[in-house]
Simulated assay, not measured.
Amino acid sequence: MSQGATMSNYRIRPGDTLSGLAARFGTTVEKLARDNNISNPDLIYSGNNLSIGHSTRDTFDAGGNNQGVRGGNDVGGPTGVGPSNASNKMQRLAEAARAAAMGMGGYNSQGLCATGVSRAISNALGIGVSGNGNQIDNNLPRDKFKQVDMTLEEALKIPGLVLTWESTSSNLGRIYGHTAVTLGDGHSSASDFIERNTTNGGRTGFKVFMPIE
């Protein structure tokens, strides 16, 4: 803890993620994990208390003048949504996707990406969505989700966005595509497993969908 920095306590709420809280409170996942002796940053529990260190320059305002900005870069794209102002629905969806993935394949793909995403959407939002990886985009109800124009790099910094690809490089992926939900840490997404380094490599037909509040 640097000189002049202070500590505050925060009670974890359903849908919170360590990456989302780090962005909100102007700190890092690594610092939160270290200050709170968290061995697995992907696993935090609702109701537990977090000690959050921040300097006088940090703000507990989730929006403020830096809305949608992280590390000096605008990550909101044309939507204006960034890590610090993701909606409650988006936070819930990210947490449900993480739980679904850990309950299915953990960090190993089971070839059931659409099942994982559908389960997360149902558990978080109460919405039933069917179809495989490259059909979910057409089956997402347009009064509940809207397509947004942003890069994969931008999307991965925001929790609770649904990603879809028409085709991937695997044999099944060429037929069924792929879908996942962003976790908001800048690199991970969840479906039937947690993909810790999500890329467009070998994937085509990329789309992003955002829950409508």
Rank of each mutant, 00 (worst) to 15 (best):
G202K: 06
M102L: 14
A124L: 05
T179S: 14
R119D: 07
C113F: 09
W165T: 03
R34M: 06
D143S: 13
G173I: 02
L163W: 11
N138M: 00
F25S: 00
S189G: 15
L93D: 06
N200G: 13
V69W: 13
R98G: 03
A23F: 01
N88C: 00
L183S: 10
M1W: 14
L125N: 11
G26D: 13
L93G: 08
D42W: 15
R24F: 03
M90C: 02
R98W: 07
G106L: 06
T198I: 06
G201L: 13
P211R: 01
I136W: 08
L183I: 09
S84H: 05
Q147V: 09
T182R: 02
G47K: 04
L21V: 07
S170V: 00
M104A: 14
G202P: 07
C113Y: 04
L21H: 09
T6Y: 04
N49H: 02
D74N: 13
L43H: 06
V81H: 00
T168C: 02
S84Y: 01
R11D: 07
A97S: 04
R13D: 05
S2T: 05
L112Y: 12
D16Q: 06
S189H: 13
T182P: 06
I127N: 08
N132C: 04
T199E: 12
G80D: 02
S170F: 03
